[in-house]
Each structure stands twice: as C-alpha cells, then as structure tokens.
Design a protein around this nucleic acid. Structure first.
Length: 942
RNA sequence: GCCCCCGUAGCCCAACAGGCAGAGGCGAGCCCCUUAAAAGGGUUUGAGUGCCGGUUCGAAUCCGGUCGGGGGCACCA
C-alpha cells in the first residue's frame, strides 16, 4: 500500500478506525465509572432509588462455542436502546445479561474432548462478554449471573425444595407448605387415603401419601424416553412428529421413576392470568392451546357389570351416540370383551378374527407397532368390535363398543361416546363400519357437509329438543348429575412437567434416599449440592430405535459422591444421592429474580428489592397488575417452554409468600429474526455466501451458477456474518444503527451487509456537522437557529420520543437522518447552530451511544450523557402557522391552497371555493357536498 | 385439515385514529472531488399499495373473497 492512500482521508473523518478508538475509550469509561449500575433499595447494591424504575430483560443466551452472529444482538440492542432512552429520561433502569449455561452442547463437547464442560462453558462466556462489550450494551455488570455458578444454582435447588415441600390446596387454589398438610392428616382433619391414623403409618408410608400431593414428586408414570440421547425429556420437548426436539431422535413412552412437577395444578391460573398480561396474542394463544382446557362432561355407559366412563365436550349430543370407542390400552377392554361374536356380527367389525379376544390382541399388536408418525399420516379409521354393548344412560339404547386407536389413552378417560352426526372423526368411523348416524343438532339451511359441528337447535334428543347448544349442555349435565350417571368436568391437555434428565451438565437434585428408598430433602444449609468431578460425562446412549433400554445417568457412576453420610435428625446415616439432573429450563425459571439481587447470600432475593423492581404497581398498570419485568424481549420459540415453566415457578413462589407478584413478565415482546441468503451449488452443497456474485438475477460462485435460498444464518449454511466483523469494518455504532433501522423490532428481515454503509455515511455526515474533519475542532456556531430549523428540530424531538417509547427505532433513526440532512443543507458543513446540534446528539445516544458521548464531550460537557438530559419538544414549534390544503374534486387533487393554521372550517371552505382552478372545474354548478377535514384537505363532490 | 400473522418502488422499509402514497437506507442515473479509486460530497430517479369485489365524498388502511409467503396446532373427543 502506498503512502498516498492514507493522505486522501482527512485525519478526523469518522472512519471505522476512528469509531473503534472512540468506542473502546467509552466502554472503558462506562466500566470504570459504573455508569450503568442501577441501585437497589437494600443490600449490597443499595443506593438512592428514584420511585420511577424500569426493568428491561433479554432472554439470556446459551453461550455456544460459535459465538454471536449478527442475528443474535438484534434483541439485545433493542432492549439497550429502550433502556438508554428511559435512563436518559431519569428512570432507574435495570438492564443486564447473564447466561443460561447448563446444557447439552458443552456436555457433548466434553464427551468428545475430555475437556470439563465448565471450562468450555466459561471460555464461551468470556467470548460472549467480549462480543457484548464491543457492542456497547449498557449492562449493569454487577448483576451478571450464570446458571452454572454454585452461588446461583444453590437457589435453583432451594426453589426446587420449596416446590417439593409444598402441595396445592384446591379449596383455596393456592400452594401451601407440606407441613400444613401433614398437620391436617395428623389431627384427623383430613383422612388418609387408606383410612389409617397418620401416627400409625411408617415414614415411608407417609411419604407415599405425601407424594400424591407434593408439587415436585417422584412418579412411575410413562415418560418420553429417548434412547438416542440416553435421557428422558418433557412433553414440551417432543416435536409434533414424535421426535426429540434436540437431535431429532425417536421418542418412546416408557414407565420410569422420574421427577415430575405438578404444573397441572396451576392449569386454570396459567390460562386465566394470560388475560392480565401485556403479551403478543400469538404467544397467549399458543399457551392456551397447549394447556388445552375444554369444558365437558364425563358420562358413564354401563357394559354388563362394568361402567365405561367417557369424556365429551358435547354432552348435549348424547342422544346421537351410536357406539362407544375405547383406546387399545384401556384397562377395561379385556373385562368387557365377549367370548364370541354375536351371530349377526358385521364382517367389517371382526378384523377377520374368530373371537373378539383374538381380534383385539391382533389389533393392539398392530397399533403398538405403528409409530406416532404412521398414526398421524394415516388417518384412515381402523378398529375392532369387542363383542360388548353399552347402555346409553339417557335412552337405554344398546350400542356397540369398539377398540380403535383414534381414541388416545392419554387424553380424557381414554374412552368416548361416538356421535357421528356431530363429529367428523366419528362420522368417518361410522361410514367405514356401517354404523348408525343420528343428527341431534339441526344443521343450518343448505348445509352439505357430513358431521355438523355448528350451532343449532337440538333434534332427536327427547327433552333437549329445541334448545340451543349451550342450554342443552347445561340441561343434560344437570340431568346426568341428578341421575348419578355423569357430571360436568373440565379437561386439560397439559400434563405434569417431567423434570429429571439423565445428564451430567445440569443442577443436581438436592435429594437423598434412605435405606427404604424414601426421598428426603437435603437441608437448606447444606446447599448447594455441587456437581462431582467425574471421568466420563456421557450418559449411556443406545441405538435410537431400541426402546427396551434404561437410562443410566452419568452421576450414578460417581460412587464417592452418590454415597453420603449425613445427620438428618436420626444420627449419622448413609444415604444415596439422587443421580438425575434438572432440565435446562430450571435455571431460566427464576433468573429475573436473581438479577434483582445477584449477590445476596442470605436469600434468593430480598423482598424490598423484589417489590421495587418486580412488584405489582396498580397505580401505573391498573388494579389487576400482576407485576413482573417491565419489558422482556426474546424470540417466539420459547412460547410454551420457558415462558410457561417460569410462570409456574413464579406462582408457586407467590403462593408461598416469597414474591409479591404472581407473574414474572408483565410485558413480553417477540423480536423478529435476522435471516440470510444461502447458496447451494448443483451438488446441493453450500458455498460461502460472501463470495457469491449476482449477474442478471442469477448467482455465481467461482464462475459456476449457484442457487439462492432464504433462511437462517448458520455455520452449515456458510452465510454467517458476525458483529465482530461489522464492528471492525464500520464500528459498533454504525452496526447498531443499521440493525435498528432495518425495520420494526418484531419483523424478521434479511441481512444485507452492503446496506450497512448507509448507516455509516449518516454518522459521517453528522460527525462532519460537529467536527472539522481536518483539524478535529468543534465547528458549531452559537447563532440562534432560524424558525424553520427550530420547527424541524422540535418536530424531530417529538417524533423521536414517541418512536423510542414504542420500539420504533427504524423511524426514530430516519427522523435523525432527516434532521441532520436539514442542517447540512440549510447551514452547510460546520456552520450548524449548537442549539440544534446538541439535542440531536442527545437523541442519537440511545442508538449510537459511543459517538454521541464523544460529541457531547467535545461540545464541552462534563461526564456521560447516559443519565440525560433528553431533549423535550416545545409545543410552540409543533404547529405550523400555515397549512397547505390539497383541494380534491371528486376525490382527485386539482388544486392547492395555503391558509393560516387557525383558519376556521368555513374560512377554508370559502377559500377553496374561491380558488381559480376550482371555480373553473365547478363551472357554476352547485357542489353536492363539500368536505373540509381540518388540517388535512378539502373534497368537493360534484 | 384448523387457527394466527404478513404482501407498498429493483431491495430493506415509512405513511397518527380511513384524508395529497414516501420519512430514511441500499441500488441505479448524472455532476463534483480525485492521477485513480471509494467506505467522500451533491443531485435526480422512482411504486398507485398481490389480485377481485364491497362500504365510503374519499381505502395501503375497514369488510368479503382469492392468490402468494411465514408461523402455530393437528385423530385432544
């Protein structure tokens, strides 16, 4: 490179190099001055706290080895801009970021390399912190946490014990300490399940009773076992096609003793409280859907000496039940199946078998071999007759009982009454097997479909005839209850949360087992139960298809750790530790509470601090305010996992009196994704996106045509762009400005490196309006800005205020560009009035904090602008003296008039009618109508 | 199959509560600076809002339908 190249660029031009210097300097300044430290009311972080506070939170990241790409910081910068804006307006703003650092990738990396997962994870965190710092995020670094820190997971374990040691009192719809339940049993106020006196039960027997109540409990129910991963997973982690979300392995239902969380106890509150949250409708509806509350009835159909209880959401259609279906796994199937077929049996019903027992056995076998996917893809109805008939309790009609796999054992009672007239699935089955169809709801006029699921009057339904669906439901439920053959009930899709995993890199359970295998809580003062050092981090994994395998957790091999001598009140005894670990979600269920009081060693969070930052504020947010983080930004992918679990924990803690609000996140916002183009060659292999050239709408790499696709940014796709590169090429402020100006926060958009230059040029132009590029001197004038400029300034202030407050950073940025362009055009470089430049710099600060700080200092101000002032708009300059009205004639603009802003409607009308072009068009006729919209336009209708 | 969101200039996006379709950026054209170049400056250019219909004095905006894209759920009784 020749020396001449350098000469061309003025010494004080805002180049990437200059920006990088400024950025580094301000990052150091902020750090050493604790600029973003937010004081707490009490405790180690105590300080003067203004009443006006704001808690902004990002969904914290898992620190992956790949580091951040340009998509990740979109939300982080978004929260930062919001936080900075409010901080400049005088609020006490809590904004920080920690790490959700337990998890599979670190463990798998450890398995491959023998490197301790803590080492890899901490290295990755260090790299993340370096990247985050370079972006100039205004985090309170005293509040950083990582879920893997023993000082953090001590409290995760503590909360687990709170949940373990409590039960849900359905009478008051609230969790209570388990001791209070024990007291009820002991006093006889509540009877034990087998009728024995509480005092007569052994400790193990008592524990068996309590297990049915505890909100965290051991269960032997069927769970999702993934041999390919060597662990069990929760329902929420199983994809729609029955695979594991991670690894995409087959999932098998298997009975295993596992930890469960009784989240179902909270189903109603989790649904009902959604109405009190300022969340995207989409997320709310996903949660409603997942919890799946449906109102209906359970009705008993007698079959010989047995009674089959069915669940239905349409008890009003019971007169139209023409058969009953039970799931293949239903426990009553064998009891009700008859010895042989009735003589008149329909051939289609027998599955070709000689007896019902044979038919059922063959059908069950076939059903069990079907994968989840088969069941879903092949919706052709199948089933066999049991030989038995059930009696419909409302009319005594005998109807056949079938076994069919379109009824699932896991939902409702595993049995249904089939009403083909009003249910399409039943219709399909009835057609296939030649069963009766009775309509019990009058279809609407002209209805041509099969099953009718709409509203209408009841028909063929005895005493229900003529009633609408709602009334018929109420009436029949009352009838059923009166006659003792059914009752109204509510059914949920939500299942209890499977809470244990067979992994190494997670929180150990603070539980030990005595010689009877009874689970005992580790006393609080012995927390945290730390992870032991092991030689082998891997769980035993198996052939992904091999369902007949058992989980073998890595911790179970740490013999010295598993066996532990403790004195738990009975003298020193040997106990065995629980060898499972908690799922990845545990640490993120409560981290907002720890951000509030990160260094507290006595409690997970002091009540004063919790109330200040997270407590309900009815005065501000209405009487129903649940409290919680003021703004929580993250992707929509956690809609039913993290966000449901966190709400559940919060409610338990609230019930037990540990927190003052019953929701963790008052306002949720889903940011969009930054996506990118990727290119594949003719062999379907990705090529480096950066090296692809576009010619005439086609794409080429190394002279060969390649094909473009749009999607996520990733290593595999070879299209990753990192913030590091952007900072190096343009500086962090340019990167921030560009990323925020790509579009509104909630919209996904394609990354376009070539567009970044626009943001950079803007900052260069703005810089040039303040600083002489050759000398570095400040060049603003002290002249009074003219009227027009003041109007432009105050209009910008008003607009930018509103845009920042509503997360419309793209338009805020545009207004700043507009204002700067006005200065350039109006005054020329270096001649802008200080009175306009200063507020402009302040308004720029939330988006581009480094360059704003630098200019603010150069303009002669001491210290940081992080805490304001933020300019306020002067109303006087927001209204114009005159307004230009377009005059429409029959909706088309034909003329324009300029009138004083305070002209009355009549004056505008008269002036418009007097306009030459208008009079020419009207040509003496009387208009039918003249519409004057004040401040907008005039429309003359001829 | 059911439910939700989105379609504005070559591209990314604006347009308050129906009122002149354009704020901003990229690109493109032209000019200036430059030996040259561009991560410099200036200036110009742009679509009638996917499509059809309705309501209205007036529709990108409201309503109905349709096409295209994205997402969620999916035999949940």
């Amino acid at each position: 490179m020749s020396e001449g190249t350098e000469e061309a660029v003025p010494g004080y031009r805002y180049t990437a190099q200059l920006a990088n210097g400024i950025e580094k300097r301000w990052q150091d300044y902020w750090e050493s001055n604790g600029t973003y430290h937010a004081p707490n009311p009490v405790g180690p972080l105590k300080g003067d706290v203004p009443e006006d506070k704001l808690f902004v939170q990002d969904m914290f990241p898992y620190p992956s080895g790949a580091g951040l790409h340009v998509g990740h910081p979109l939300g982080y910068i978004g929260t930062d801009v919001f936080a900075r804006y409010h901080r400049m307006n005088g609020r006490n703003v809590l904004h920080t970021m920690g790490f959700d650092a337990f998890g599979l990738p670190a463990e798998q990396y450890a398995v491959r390399t023998g490197q301790h997962p803590r080492k890899t994870t901490e290295d990755n965190i260090a790299n993340y912190l370096r990247q985050l710092r370079a972006l100039g995020l205004g985090h309170d670094d005293r509040r950083r946490i990582a879920t893997i820190d023993p000082g953090y997971y001590r409290w995760t374990q503590w909360i687990f014990l709170q949940i373990f040691n409590s039960w849900y009192d359905t009478r008051i719809r609230k969790a209570r300490p388990i001791d209070e339940l024990v007291a009820e049993f002991a006093s006889g106020e509540r009877a034990t399940p087998n009728g024995h006196m509480w005092d007569d039960l052994t400790p193990a027997e008592r524990e068996d009773v309590l297990r049915e109540y505890r909100l965290a409990y051991l269960s032997d129910a069927p769970v999702n076992w993934v041999p390919g991963l060597g662990t069990v997973i929760s329902n929420e982690e199983v994809t729609a096609d029955g695979k594991s979300e991670r690894g995409n392995f087959p999932v098998f239902r298997k009975n295993l003793r596992q930890w469960m969380m009784r989240i179902t106890a909270y189903a109603d509150r989790l649904i009902d409280d959604l109405d009190r949250l300022d969340w995207p409708e989409k997320v709310k509806s996903m949660q409603r859907n997942w919890i799946g509350r449906s109102h209906g009835a359970r009705i008993t159909f007698t079959v010989g000496n047995e009674g089959i209880e069915v669940f239905t959401t349409r008890p009003d259609t019971v007169f139209g039940a023409t058969y009953v279906v039970v799931a293949p796994e239903h426990p009553l199937v064998d009891a009700i199946a008859t010895e042989r077929w009735p003589s008149t049996v329909d051939k289609r019903w027998t599955g070709g078998a000689d007896t019902p027992a044979e038919a059922i056995a063959a059908y069950r076998l076939a059903a069990s071999m079907k994968s989840e996917l088969d069941r879903q893809e092949n919706k052709e109805k199948t089933g066999v007759f049991t030989g038995a008939f059930a009696e419909n309790p409302v009319n005594g009609k005998k109807i056949p009982v079938f076994v069919a796999d379109y009824v699932l054992m896991g939902y409702g009672t595993g049995a249904i009454m089939a009403v083909p007239g009003q249910d399409q699935r039943d219709w399909d089955f009835a057609k296939m097997f030649g069963l009766d169809i009775i309509r019990t709801v009058q279809p609407t006029e002209g209805f041509e479909g099969e099953a009718f699921t709409g509203e209408g009057p009841a028909i063929n339904s005895g005493f229900l005839d003529g009633m609408d669906v709602d009334e018929a439901k109420k009436t029949i439920i009352a009838w059923l209850e009166e006659h003792g053959c059914g009752r109204g009930t509510i059914q949920y899709k939500l299942r209890d949360w499977l809470f244990s995993r067979q992994r190494y890199w997670g929180e150990p359970f603070p539980i030990v087992y005595d010689e009877h295998g009874t689970a005992i809580a580790v006393p609080e003062e012995m927390l945290p139960v730390e992870l032991p050092e092991v030689d082998d981090y891997s769980p035993r994994t198996y052939d992904p298809m091999d369902a007949d395998t058992e989980p073998l957790p890595p911790l179970s091999r740490a013999d010295d750790w598993v066996e532990v001598e403790l004195d738990l009140g009975e003298g020193k005894k040997t106990y065995r530790r629980d060898t499972n670990t908690m799922p990845n979600w545990a640490g993120s269920c409560w981290y907002q509470l720890r951000y509030v009081d990160p260094t507290d060693t006595e409690r997970f969070c002091e009540p004063e601090n919790e109330q200040y930052w997270l407590g309900p504020r009815p005065a501000e947010h209405g009487a129903n305010d649940p409290g919680g983080v003021d703004l929580y930004i993250g992707g929509v992918e956690h809609a039913v996992l993290h966000l449901l679990y966190a709400r559940f924990w919060q409610k338990v803690l609230f019930d037990l009196g540990h927190v003052s609000g019953d929701e963790p996140y008052r306002r949720l916002f889903n940011q969009g994704y930054v996506q990118a183009y990727a290119y594949k060659d003719s062999r379907d292999v990705f090529v480096p996106a950066e090296e692809v050239e576009e010619r005439d709408g086609k794409f080429f790499w190394n002279g060969e045509e390649v094909f473009r696709q749009y999607g996520k940014m990733g290593k595999t796709e070879r299209n990753v762009v990192t913030p590091d590169e952007m900072c190096e090429r343009y500086g962090a402020d340019t990167f921030r400005f560009y990323e925020m100006s790509m579009g509104p926060m909630d919209v996904s958009r394609p990354w376009a490196t070539k567009d970044v230059i626009g943001a950079h040029r803007f900052l260069q132009r703005l810089w040039r309006n303040v600083i002489d590029e050759d000398t570095g001197a400040v060049v603003v004038t002290d002249a009074q800005p003219d009227e027009e400029t003041l109007r432009a300034l105050h209009k910008a202030i008003a607009g930018v205020h509103e845009d920042y407050a509503n997360l419309r950073y793209n338009t805020a940025g545009a207004k700043l560009i507009e204002l700067n362009n006005h200065l350039t055009k109006h005054y020329g470089p270096g001649k802008s009035p200080r009175a306009v430049v200063e507020p402009m710099v302040l308004m720029l600060a939330p988006l581009c904090p480094h360059v704003a700080e630098e200019l603010w200092t150069k303009l002669g101000h001491e210290g940081s602008l992080a805490h304001g002032p933020f300019p306020a708009a002067d109303e006087r300059y927001l209204v114009d003296d005159t307004v230009e009205y377009p005059i429409q004639v029959n909706g088309k603009v034909r003329a324009r008039i300029t009138v004083p802003a305070d002209a009355s409607r009549e004056q505008v009308h008269d002036l418009a009618m007097a306009d030459d072009k208008v009079t020419a068009l009207i040509n003496g006729a009387t208009p039918k109508k003249v519409i004057v919209v004040p401040g907008r336009l005039v429309n003359i209708v001829l």
